[in-house]
Structures are given as structure tokens and as C-alpha cells.
Design a protein around this nucleic acid. Sequence first.
DNA 1: CATTTCATTTGCGATAGCGCAAATCAATTT
DNA 2: AAATTGATTTGCGCTATCGCAAATGAAATG
Lengths: 232, 232
Amino acid sequence: MNTHDHMIDNFSKSELFKNLPADQINEIICIGSTQPLKPKAILFYQGDPAKNYFWVKQGTLKLSQVTEDGKEITLRYISPGDMTAALAIMKQKEYPVTAQAMEPSTVVAWNRSQILKIMEKFPRVTINALSIVLEQLDDMQIRYMELCTQQVEQRVARTLMRFVRTSGKKNNNGICIDIPLSRKDIAEYIGTTLFTVSRVLSMWEKKGWLKTSKGQIIILEPHKIVEFSEEI
Amino acid sequence: MNTHDHMIDNFSKSELFKNLPADQINEIICIGSTQPLKPKAILFYQGDPAKNYFWVKQGTLKLSQVTEDGKEITLRYISPGDMTAALAIMKQKEYPVTAQAMEPSTVVAWNRSQILKIMEKFPRVTINALSIVLEQLDDMQIRYMELCTQQVEQRVARTLMRFVRTSGKKNNNGICIDIPLSRKDIAEYIGTTLFTVSRVLSMWEKKGWLKTSKGQIIILEPHKIVEFSEEI
DNA sequence: CATTTCATTTGCGATAGCGCAAATCAATTT
DNA sequence: AAATTGATTTGCGCTATCGCAAATGAAATG
């Protein structure tokens, strides 16, 4: 398997390139430009003019927003196969969020005219993009609902399980969340303070439900946390 | 102008049919089926199998979600030109929300295979749908941020201004919000209780910033409320 | 290895807003 | 008009969670 095949393989797994023949995927790949990102590197800032549309090949990016009074909140973490800044296609606007790499990552970028050409030539890509954005909207709606109705402990539990789903790796002991998540990261994701998250996590650590070391969270008793997340 | 022309005219104003020639819009119209809705009528329930994709021609629909423990929260109000249940196209899933008419409304429905055919034949429609969903996502993200960082009073203020933008009608006295909104409606939209909303609104009413009568809200001092919504 | 820097923990007081109850007001029906 | 039903207001106690400070722990740097 040469590197090119590998690339196609990587792409074809993605929702964005679903139902496309390899040669077409190849053609689309060649139009864009691949870009590596070091951990903590900023791909784009909230407020920058939105020039590119991005597809995540490797790693994880954090999309966050800063309020007028400087509070930072995290909207989403995106992983391989996911995409962002789709609105760069539609309108000549500014990026509504800041995108930062959480770990070594690779993204593919297409500019507005490139992606428009792609979408006109391969309608399937547009339909797939629509599908991805709909998933993102659905996720956002669920989190909005959770934020409205649940208290912090439940939201922390749900967040852990969410990360287990997207980046959980089975370990000898339990399930390890593959992204380094600080108390602050979690707090900004669920709209609370790092102190409150710290209290909740250290309580669960004392109960032996999880373990944190080197910024990594290892879930030892997933079902206990799931139970908690479903509590009324 | 005959009724048909009128219909086309109505459609062509919508984001969904932007950049499409009249004859193509016409063709698309003829595929779908128009459906009138009385106030309070339910278009579809959360949990129903998602069969149709809807476009709002007239009126306003409320999209809401119910939690496992029975709390109702409102995700969005949609107005003419907007669409919903786009995920009915992509996946054979259930509607994630309940859609209810707030006033006499008209929607156009296409089923999965109809809309897929339309999108394949008219790629522009898919791109436009993507654009609409991206707007919805952006809106949801902003509201998520607001819910995370602002207190109830500010969120009420922002909500009023949001409705002024989408359904505000200038009046002799001030700006009238054209949708009947109860305290409960607002509370469910911003994740608080009807009591708290009542306190805030009656306070502002005492200050003369607004007036409520027959379930209608009339904003008398918009700038006062805007000021409030921007307060840090 | 000492030092700086950053993340986490923990304690404690303050408070926004919930939850419930009861009263009032408005609209609709008989 | 009287009666019913539903929406709104208002009071009051309660609590989840914030906000800050200070201590501790861990990691990075010279």
C-alpha cells in the first residue's frame, strides 16, 4: 500500500466522502492542501475572515468562543472525519469560533471557490456535508437541553461518556479518554467553573469510579457514571 | 397575478430556493404537498419516524424537546422560508423534536425519496439547505454560549430582541412581537422558570420599557432592553 | 536539585434563581 | 352574570453553585 492509497483509505472512511468512488475522492483530495498542526496551535481565530473550509484528517480540535466580557466557552471537540468552518463556503463572513489543536493533528483545507467547485461537481459531497452539519446541530440541541435541565454532576457524567464514545480507548483497567482534558476544559464545555468540576471529579475518584493522571482521565466504573448521568 | 405565480414568488424569496430559475422552483413545488396547520396543531412529534422534510411557507412553528423526566424546552421558533426535519433526508431516524404551529401556518412537505431526487437534480437546493442548517447551528451555538455565561435577565432581553428581529412589527407606540408568547414560552426558550420570567417582565413593564396585553408583547423602549442585553 | 509555573484541591461566604403555595387577574364557557 | 379554566404575579425559604482565597501538588525549566 503506497501513501496515496493510504490517503484515499483515510478519506473514504469519512462521512464527507461516503458513497464516492475512489477516483473522485482522489480528485477532491488533490484540490485541497494538507496542513499539520502542533498541539495548542491555532488553526483560526474567532473574528478572522473565513477563508477556508476544513476537514480533520488526524487529531482533535477544540472549537471555542469568547464572550464580549472575556469568558471562554467550548462549543465542540472535533475528531478525524469531522469538518468545520462550512459557513466559509456560504457567506463571506468571519469565523464564529476559534479552532485549536489539542494534540498533533492534520487538517485538509479548501478555500471558498475550491469547495464550491467540488460541491457543484460532486453533489454527493454537499449532501454528506449537510448530513455532518445536521449531526452537529442535533448534538448542540441535546447539549442545550442538558444545560437547561440538568445539574452540573449529571452534565459532567454525560460529558465523560460523550468523550468515551468519541475517543475512548479500552485499557487493562478501564476506559481511557484519549484527549488530555483539564478541569477547566470540562468546565468550559458544560458551562460551569473548574472548581465545581474539580469537586465532582475528585469525589468520583475517591469512590474509585475513575482515575486521573497526567491530564488523562481513566474511567474505571463506566456503568456507575452512566447511571449517574441518567439520574432524575 | 394568478395563484401559481404567487406561489413561485413566495418560494423564490426563501433561502432554500435562492439562485434557482422560476421554472425549476415551479417543478420542485409541484413535487411536494402543501399542508395547512391550525394554531396549536402538531406537525410531528418527537419520536415519530422521520418521514418528511418541511419548508415553512407561512406562520411560525415551535420546535421543542421533552426530557426523560418530562421537562419541556424550546429549541427554536421557525418562520417563513425556514425549514426543519432535514435529517429526515439523511437517516431513517426519528424526529428529535416536536413541531407545533403557534399561529395559522402552511408548510410544504417532501418525503425522503422526493427530496433526495430534488437534491440530486438541483444541487443548488442542497447547498442552500446546507446554508440554512449552518445558520441554525450558528444560532444554537450563540444561545449555548449565552446560556453558559449570562444571567436570566440578560437572556430575557436578548430573547425579546431576537423576536423583534424575526417577528417585530412597528406599531404606533413601539415594536410589537407578532407571536403570542407566554411567560412559560420564554422560560422554556432560555432555560429558566416562568416565575423568574414573570418577575423580570413585570419589572420592565413597571419601568415602562414594554407592555403586555392579550399574550402579545409590545416593546416601548427597545434601546433600554438592548442596553440591558449587552450589560456585562 | 531548586525554582518557577501551572493545575488541582478545599474551605467558606454570598447569591441567583428555583420550587412551591397562594393570590390575583384575564379569558372563556355555561 | 356566574363559574370555570388558564395565565400571571408575588412572597418566602432553600440550595446548588459561584467566586474568591489560600494551600497543595505536579510538571517544566534553569
